[in-house]
Write a protein that binds this DNA or RNA. Structure first.
Lengths: 188, 188
DNA sequence: CAATAAATAGACAAATCTGTCTATTTATTG
DNA sequence: CAATAAATAGACAGATTTGTCTATTTATTG
């Protein structure tokens, strides 16, 4: 039952889908490219995922899980509660560097399929609610200046992160995320 | 030379492309659907646009022009300089209602084609720079509290608008745009 | 009116797409 | 080892994609 060395087929599929769906977009990525680059048989893919849309849903959920794990690991390394808020921005600067400023994978998936597939939309909303909740907890524990209320500051950080990542993906650089960080720093 | 009543072919194409590219996405919209719904011949489309990608570039540029006209008209109705800043948010709440919370058309186009087509990326960057410049001018004339510098406030408003529109398109409602407005109100 | 330009309908090519199916080989497990 | 499950390669169907081309009709303009 346990495959230790060598990925199991479903992981190879998801790894490849994750890379291609983000880089090229869902619609621009064909099943044939996925199975070729994942180096698996087509029948194997359709044994694990009934349709291409099912693979998209799985991709969003898996991206959500991995996003959360990585962010949690980053935040655990930061002690000061205000610094945790600022670490959010540094984390996303690093992530967007790695992602070559391709923007937020959830917003991308939402723009491509969120209006037509309700399961995709639901998975994306879950991820964004998760992000917002996490920020709310960090704000509550931060002991900030109270220029804004807890709720306002949390919403502002959430919205600023979203906007800064979107802007960074337009201008292909970290500038807006760094700017957002400095401004939030003034407000906490 | 002048066509007065009845749209010329190129306008019918662009109107249809505008609607379909935004609603369904560029990749999910076929040339055949465009010509059918625009009620024109395929040869006419390819006489005006060499490739589908050229139509996308034209779509982005036209969306940019129309976005600016509409926003300018809205702002001209507002006298108070601080109210102009707040009117940005109201304007986008209305626009996103009409657009059924489909998000920013430029970010959408960027997510779908910005990484692969440099002309699309350039057109999107122009639109976003235009938006940022407009906000900067409004901020400079606003006589705000100077909790933030002019540059910081302008960047914050730009980023907050981007983020709020993205969040609104995930949660399919105006909540985040309204919240962003209230927060900016506190800072000006 | 005559000449030129613009638009039309639609067939067509060539490639690509998702999804199905068969037949075979490789792993796993009792 | 024997039985079951999982993965493979690849042909195939049927639909759809972008873009080209021909032949015809409709507008425009000198």
């Amino acid at each position: 039952m346990m495959k230790q060395r060598g990925q199991v087929v479903v992981d190879k599929i998801l790894d490849t889908a994750e890379r291609l769906f983000y880089l090229q977009g869902y619609s621009n990525t064909g099943i044939n490219q996925v199975i070729e680059e994942a180096d698996i048989a087509k029948a194997s893919l359709y044994k694990h995922f009934e349709t291409k849309a099912d693979l998209l849903v799985a991709y969003v959920q898996r991206t959500h899980e991995r996003w959360f794990s990585r962010l949690e690991a980053t935040l655990n390394k930061v002690a000061d509660p205000k610094d945790k808020l600022l670490a959010l921005f540094d984390h996303h600067i690093e992530r967007q560097e790695i992602r070559q400023y391709g923007g937020c994978p959830f917003i991308k998936a939402n723009d491509e399929a969120g209006m037509s597939d309700s399961r995709v939309l639901a998975a994306i909303q879950q991820a964004k609610r998760h992000s917002k909740d996490l920020i709310k907890k960090l704000v509550a524990a931060s002991g900030h200046k109270r220029i804004l209320t807890d709720r306002e500051l949390a919403e502002m950080i959430f919205i600023a992160l979203e906007g800064a990542i979107a802007a960074a993906s337009v201008f292909k650089g970290p500038a807006e995320i760094q700017t957002a960080k400095k401004i939030i720093q003034k407000l906490i």
